[in-house]
Write a protein that binds this DNA or RNA. Structure first.
Length: 597
RNA sequence: GCGCCCGUAGCUCAGUAGGAUAGAGCACCGGUUUCCUAAACCGGGGGUCACAAGUUCGAAUCUUGUCGGGCGUACCA
């Protein structure tokens, strides 16, 4: 079934076209701003009236007269300057619930009529370094977008564009030589003598990387040497390649562990890093040169796409090859576009990266379109804001380092554990651990999703783990309460299965029942709006409201002790709420639910 | 300097094509438990939507200007 709002939009828009004699009219239907206006309001009539210069209220009357939506709504009311207020019929709501009830997999959410091949580029950690808080948003938002698109029936192709070909490897190899932990060619002339690098740990790589980063900042000579090592790697030097292999392998192992912990669906099949495009880079540059788009400027090869200016008001360069001959991320990104369009047959490519890269992507897209490698509107930068500390600055440790993702999650789980310990000490250790994992990790993810993607947000363990408010624990608690009812049913001799079997007639009478039922029917609306803007917070808002409405219902309506004519309806409301929360959290957001907490 | 984003309740934030009296949560005040998990629920106070002008039946939303903040701006990603 289509979302109600879309059915109404279609039908009312059509009538508006007919009445006004205009081709394309939009009803612009919104949820009513106030419950006293009903469930939905039509805003588009006033705009149309303005357009065709007529009285809005009169136009609304004409529209209502011709409109037949009696299968869905009560008779529409015209209000104010020309609003049409719509109120759903209880029978319609009941029908909607029953339909969702039957469609156990898809909650009566309609699949897309035009499935696309959508590449989603996200996560993209660097090798030789642990994942840190800076990778959190890309990783989980990207994953959520993949899950939602897939649910709507698209062919989603996740791409993990890892940073495995950059300067950081040069740094690490340089440091290994200087510390005599590892030496290259001249020291090991025979292949048998080469250490297998298996003793090099990620921590070791990280330590070296950090050390050299500092050195490079102050010493241009070292910077030069580091670059030379990077060049050696790029030109196929087998000694440096051994170190690179090792760094890549152990870094990815860590990443995959992290993805598993975060319930992010990324694995080796999706890893397609910078290094995989290494042989295409020169072709990209040559191609752009041949086409006459790339020219030399200050010894670098640049494209100057239209519409970008620098401080002097001249064209801004998009540098695809540095003056020292090296390629950079602009080149790799272009090569990736060609691969994704030609080989992966992408109709759309989404880049889930932070907002600071906005200009880069604008220029990248402009160049790709200029070169004819991508069509207009194929490429989208799904950007996001930064994670800030309580001080309003980007989140760092006290010593100014990036916060490791692992440590962040560990702390969240630890704090969740303490709460479970306090609230439910009688549970087994194993259960407590499971709950702490679900709540702790869920809290971190949910807090991120529930903030507007495009703005920065302040990271706070206390807030994300609070039981009040729009948090993962609140949602998980609502779910656990329903599961508890189901367990109690057995003791109280209520056979839920039998009562819900072939249920056809509902008895929605209490206001809290009706409110909850209406909201359940709107699940597909929430998903549609979250997908069309790639904004998970629309989904979390929906789920939060659902949990709130359930809690209100739960408080005012006994379920197991309800009268026989009310009980099946209430059991159904509980069941559908639990299923919707579970689906939203686990399937779309990748957050676990728990049976008790 | 130029470009992009932002400024909404004491705090953290929603506000999805310009719609009716601007919404949540936290915090604050008051109430609810012999009853399915009170990690909950119900009620209350709290706003010049940074400021100013404009567009119109109607502006937090669009335009212009001012102030304040963030980010970016030729060889990092």
């Amino acid at each position: 079934m289509k979302p109600v709002i879309e059915i109404l939009e279609d039908r009312i828009s059509a009538v508006m076209s007919e009445v006004a004699g205009q081709e394309k009219c939009s009803a612009i239907i919104k949820q009513a701003s106030d419950p006293k206006f009903g469930d939905y309001q039509v805003n588009g009539v006033m705009a149309l009236a303005k357009q065709i210069k007529t009285n809005p209220r009169k136009l609304a009357e004409q529209v209502v007269e011709k409109l037949d939506i009696s299968d869905i709504c009560e008779f529409p009311e015209i209000a104010g300057p020309g609003f049409i207020n719509l109120r759903l019929k209880p029978e319609f709501i009941a029908r909607g619930l029953l339909e969702i009830n039957k469609d156990t997999e898809n909650f009566a959410v309609e699949k897309t009529t035009g499935p696309k091949n959508i590449v989603v580029d996200f996560s993209g950690p660097n090798i030789a370094k642990q994942m840190h808080v800076g990778h959190l948003r890309s990783t989980i938002i990207g994953d959520c977008i993949c899950r939602m698109l897939k649910f709507l029936g698209h062919n989603v192709i996740p791409q993990n564009h890892i940073g495995d070909w950059g300067l950081q490897m040069g740094m690490v190899i340089y440091a290994l030589e200087k510390e005599a932990k590892w030496t290259t060619e001249d020291k090991f002339p025979n292949i048998e003598n080469i250490p297998d690098a298996s003793d090099l740990s990620l921590e070791e790589f990280e330590r070296l990387y950090k050390k050299v980063t500092k050195l490079v900042e102050t010493d241009p000579e070292i910077s030069k040497e580091v670059k030379a090592y990077t060049v050696a790697l790029h030109s196929g030097d087998k000694w440096t390649k051994i170190i690179w292999d090792r760094a890549r392998k152990i870094s990815l192992e860590q990443c995959y562990k992290m993805y598993k912990r975060l319930k992010v669906n990324l694995n080796n099949n999706h890893t397609h890093g910078e290094s995989s495009y290494k042989d295409d880079l020169s072709k990209v540059v040559d191609d752009l040169k041949e086409k006459g788009f790339a020219i030399e400027s200050d010894d670098a090869i640049c494209v100057f796409p239209e519409g970008f200016k620098n401080k002097e008001g001249d064209r801004l360069p998009f540098i695809i090859q540095k003056s020292d001959g090296a390629y950079l991320y602009a080149t790799t990104d272009l090569a990736a576009i060609r691969y994704r369009v030609n080989k992966l047959k992408a109709n759309m490519i989404l880049y889930v990266t932070d907002a600071r890269q906005k200009l880069h992507f604008e220029m990248l897209f402009a160049v790709a379109e200029l070169a004819g490698w991508a069509k207009k509107n194929m490429l989208h930068h799904v950007m996001f804001g930064s994670v800030l500390g309580e001080n309003g600055q980007p989140l760092k440790t006290r010593s100014g380092e990036n916060v490791k993702l692992k440590e962040l999650l560990d702390e969240a789980v630890e704090r969740a554990k303490a709460v479970v310990e306090q609230k439910n000490p009688e549970l087994s250790q194993n259960e407590k651990d499971k709950i702490a994992q679900a709540v702790g990790i869920g809290a971190v993810k949910y807090a991120d999703y529930s903030n507007n993607r495009t703005s920065d947000y302040v990271f706070s363990f206390d807030k994300m783990l609070a039981m009040e408010g729009n948090t993962a624990p609140y949602m998980q608690y609502a779910y656990a309460r329903i599961k508890s009812i189901e367990r109690k049913a057995q003791i109280k001799d209520v056979d839920i299965k039998t009562e819900l079997k072939d249920i056809e007639n509902l008895n929605l009478s209490d206001p809290s029942e009706i409110e909850l039922a209406k909201h359940l029917v709107r699940y597909s609306e929430a998903i549609q709006s979250a997908v069309s803007d790639f904004k998970p917070n629309y989904l979390t808002s929906y789920l939060y409201e659902l949990a709130q409405k359930f809690s209100t219902f739960y408080t005012s309506c006994p379920v197991l002790k309800a009268e026989p004519e009310q009980r099946p309806t209430r059991l159904l409301l509980c069941d559908l709420t639990a299923r919707t929360i579970k689906h939203g959290l686990t399937e779309l957001l990748g957050i676990e639910v728990v049976e008790q907490m």
